[in-house]
């Protein structure tokens, strides 16, 4: 995990990666590739309490709080959602609750993937971001 970089720096890295792509095919191939490469979540974590249910696909999210930082892991049954999740984890994981709460997460809009956030009913991605922030809020309360 790129713990030494700030959230904005990692977002900027992703935006730069995407700026190399000219076609939608390249963008989606990259996202699908990241989805496939995302470390699968252990089956023990794929339980009801970790589910962020969308109408069509399911997301599982687990947060682990160590040394003042939150480490996220997640999974989905749909690979494009999984690719987007992978980017969110890359951006937010390994940061303090305060940093995560402050994060604006603008890169999704910048790389033209906003429609996937709009489809909250179907893929639960927006709920996932909310849930990541909720974890940050909860761990902030615990640590203070």
């Amino acid at each position: 995990m790129s713990v030494s970089k700030t959230i904005e720096e990692v977002e900027q890295e992703i935006v730069e990666d995407f700026s190399l792509f000219d076609t939608w095919e390249e963008k989606y191939e990259y996202i699908i590739d990241m989805g496939k490469k995302l470390q699968p979540l252990d089956d023990v974590h794929k339980k009801e309490e970790n589910i962020i249910k969308g109408c069509q696909s399911t997301v599982w999210l687990v947060a682990d709080y160590r040394d003042g930082k939150i480490h996220f892991s997640a999974d989905s049954d749909a690979v494009i959602v999984k690719g987007l999740i992978s980017m969110l984890i890359r951006v937010l994981s390994g940061h303090t609750p305060a940093e995560i709460l402050d994060a604006k997460i603008e890169f999704i809009n910048t790389i033209g993937m906003m429609q996937h956030l709009a489809q909250t009913r179907s893929n639960g991605l927006l709920s996932m971001i909310k849930q990541m922030k909720n974890y940050a809020l909860a761990y902030q309360a615990v640590s203070s």
Partner: peptide, 22 residues
Amino acid sequence: GAHPQDVGVLLDQQGIAVRTGH
């Protein structure tokens, strides 16, 4: 081997409207 939602997203990119889900 492909989730219907993923298929739907990629068809939409190609201007094709189908429905996916239950």
